[in-house]
Design a protein around this nucleic acid. Structure first.
Lengths: 213, 213
DNA sequence: CAAAATCTGGAAGGGGTCTTCCGTTTCACC
DNA sequence: GGTGAAACGGAAGACCCCTTCCAGATTTTG
């Protein structure tokens, strides 16, 4: 319907893009909870323009991180197709855990569910599906312990995210060390039983409301 | 000096205690960043009374968690004296990691430095000293991997704290599973090299400013 | 029991963020 | 170029939090 959509004005399109760029920059440095006015300031536009383009913070987050979430799912798919599943598993975990070091905002997005944002959640689910494939292959190949659960992934994300949160370089190297511990714990040699995982449904529901102050 | 400190009025003492009780309750449930007005409301006093007793949030935090921090250091000392160091190490790590499940506020306090609060920091240091003793004994006894650093303790605290933060029961069982992974990674059987730890000075400095929004 | 010292609660003030409104400016089309 | 529609930016309003002040209530003391 409504095929006669007018071409948007040039300055409007430019401002839209500027806002996206500024938001990507600010969110990456300081997380997705920065004041909206700071985004507008960096974009060189007024706060009203920001509010008109993205009425809610969630809209801006979705627009900024849609591509990153797709790239994340693509990376999972590539890992799942790797001929050496255990190596790919380790590489993927490292990749995921370093995300909040590179982009603090995307780190938050990865550990927060946005039930209303289809673009984000569909890619997240695709990433999880690919990760499940990767896990199964890594178990079959023998590198990964059999009782590893694919739903330990958000757990690992939360853990390293908690370390990286403050964002200083010292904590970044600390997070790398944590990854080292965790990967060794995931190796097939470990046979001691683990506490059971929580029911996935509850786990993911908990992630929906996990953006506190 | 000033030896003639008058006995405080009975109602003032009662309100002081009420504030401490209410703060312990609220901080435990919702963390140490809850609005001060909420503390006053639960204590059944006005906000002015709260402000007079504890001018800064830090003062209230110190008063509420001083005893808990001492208990933490005591627990570390008991573990360091345990005849079975590796078992004591595992027990202590579990104890520490479950703290934010039981008391969200104290979990935050444990991973945040309060440079101005002697009562808190001296006990924290005592706890760390005892933990270092425990680590050395556990390494000698052979249960703990030799390249474990005592300064991995805040790392582990941050990691489990990050998982527990949302506070739902599902995430509590998830945190237990994380502890399971980490303890297995700490066992002496693991010989794969770890990424080096960050310089302790920088690490602890990073913890001084880690109470973001 | 009354005076003095102490303590109390609410209201006002200041800082911060987000949303909404509106007069003005800029662009696209003819 | 001129004109109408679209987009702009800043100000105003609402909300939340913390701090400070003060008139009134309460307890202690002689």
């Amino acid at each position: 319907m409504t095929p006669g959509a007018r071409r948007p004005r040039a300055d409007a399109a430019r401002n839209h893009q500027r806002l996206l760029d500024a938001a990507a920059e600010v969110f990456g440095e300081a997380g997705i909870d920065v004041p909206m006015s700071e985004v507008a300031r960096r974009a060189g536009v007024g706060i009203a323009t920001l509010a008109r383009n993205f009425p809610a913070r969630e809209d801006l987050v979705a627009a900024v991180f849609g591509a990153a979430m797709t790239a994340y799912a693509d990376t999972a798919a590539a890992a799942a197709a790797d001929p050496d599943p255990w190596r790919a598993f380790c590489g993927f975990i490292e990749y995921v855990c370093r995300i909040p070091q590179r982009d603090r905002g995307f780190g938050q997005v990865l550990t927060t569910m946005f039930p209303g944002v289809e673009a984000l959640e569909s890619q997240r689910q695709r990433g999880l599906r690919e990760f499940i494939r990767l896990v199964n292959r890594a178990k079959k190949a023998g590198g990964l312990r059999p009782d590893f659960s694919p739903h330990d992934l958000p757990l690992i994300m939360l853990a390293t995210g908690g370390v990286t949160r403050a964002g200083t370089p010292a904590l970044a190297t600390a997070a790398d060390r944590l990854i080292g511990y965790l990967l060794q714990a995931c190796a097939a040699g470990n046979t001691a039983p683990l506490p059971g995982p929580p029911p996935p449904r509850e786990l993911y529901r908990a992630l929906e409301s996990s953006r506190p102050a």
